[in-house]
């Protein structure tokens, strides 16, 4: 089983590298040097053959953006898989239960209210502040939705989804209201949040993301067995020696952290957490031992492809990435609803 898992992960990694190198080449700007390999080689040898434009686009625009797509796709997919395991339902994803909305609401508040002393802070603190706000928003919504929809260790899916709708509506209203209180620059930031885009990728943001994701994965990716056991019901999982409450707390805090950070940097990109586990379930059933680590790589592939399409399909302009993920995600949402309509 373990060997097979390693094989699947390696195959996905190869695929991811393939997609990434294609994505690096595609875009509104075409490199003067036709071969990317040549650019890298020249860059490394430092012989000054790389034009300034090539260097800028490759290292300050395209590469950070690709890295961000990889990191965020992974984080969203893993969050989705973990939440589905915890809620024991394939519809429990960060954006359907309102966690992304909660995070963007708090991020918006952070931007508008923080605007007063923002200019005095260094960039690291600035981005961290918004991420922390988004994290607080995410964890508050997650706790609220979980408490509300779960009684006696059973989750009521209808309540869970409707709580998500309610929170999204509230977040939408407050964010809308905030747009009237803001100046131009903040308004641009807010619009960017509501649409979702990876356009603002920088190495600094990627650095923060790497830290958050690395830390979360160490504590989460080995929880496949626990999530499998929780399908039996939480009591029975406890009888198998699984520390259920501890696992749930860990999932709530870490997914909130990941979703919060992602939302703070790229806005509410929906559906990745729904699509990836769904595809993996089609192949591997609900075996979290396999789909949890795999979703970390497949999520990267999916979001990277989506982002590459979103920035090339209407080049030189750019289509919000949320449009693409929704195109994929909404039919899957409907498919799950049809399959589970008896159990809802």
């Amino acid at each position: 089983m373990q060997n097979k898992l390693l094989l699947y992960i390696s195959v996905c990694f190869v695929l991811l590298i393939g997609v990434a190198s294609i994505s690096l080449k595609l875009g509104a700007y075409s490199f003067e040097d036709s071969s990317l390999w040549q650019i890298f080689k020249n860059e490394l040898s430092g012989n000054g053959l790389v034009s300034e434009m090539d260097h800028y686009v490759l290292f300050n625009v395209r590469l950070p953006r690709i890295v961000m797509a990889i990191l965020m796709g992974s984080a969203f997919a893993v969050s989705g898989t973990c939440l589905q395991g915890m809620f024991k339902n394939p519809l429990a994803t960060p954006n359907l239960i309102g966690v992304t909305s909660g995070a963007s609401l708090f991020a918006a508040i952070g931007i508008v209210l923080g605007g007063h002393f923002r200019s005095y802070l260094p960039d690291v603190l600035n981005y961290s502040l918004i991420s922390i706000m988004a994290f607080i928003g995410a964890i508050l919504t997650m706790t609220f939705v979980y408490r509300m929809s779960t009684t006696r260790r059973k989750t009521n899916v209808v309540v869970m989804l409707l709580a998500g709708v309610a929170i999204s509506a509230l977040a939408g209203a407050v964010t809308g209201f905030l747009t009237y209180l803001t100046d131009d620059e903040q308004l641009r930031d807010l619009t960017f949040w509501t649409l979702g885009s990876l356009g603002g990728a920088t190495w600094l943001k990627n650095g923060i993301l790497v830290i958050v994701i690395f830390f979360s994965y160490i504590l989460l990716l080995n929880k496949g067995k626990a999530l499998n056991a929780m399908m039996l019901g939480e009591e029975d999982a406890t009888h198998l020696g699984i520390p259920v409450e501890k696992v749930k707390k860990r999932i709530i805090i870490l997914t909130a952290l990941m979703v919060g950070t992602c939302v703070a940097f790229a806005g509410a990109i929906g559906f990745v957490g729904l699509i990836v586990p769904y595809i993996l379930r089609l192949i591997f059933k609900s075996n979290y031992h396999i789909i949890l680590p795999l979703s970390a790589v497949v999520g990267s592939i999916l979001l990277l492809i989506a982002d590459t399409i979103s920035r090339t399909i209407v080049a030189p302009s750019e289509m919000p990435i949320g449009i693409l993920t929704a195109f994929l995600g909404a039919p899957i949402f409907i498919a799950i609803l049809i399959r589970f309509k008896k159990n809802l």
Binding site: A229, M231, G233, E235, D236, G241, K285, N287
Partner: peptide
């Protein structure tokens, strides 16, 4: 040292039979 068979078993477990039995070996 102790195991329990519960009356209410979740009817929806998307796994193969052997994977469900294997859960008994998780400890």
């Amino acid at each position: 040292n102790k195991a329990k068979f519960s009356q209410e078993n979740n009817s929806d477990i998307g796994l193969l039979v052997k994977d469900v039995v294997l859960m008994g070996r998780y400890p």
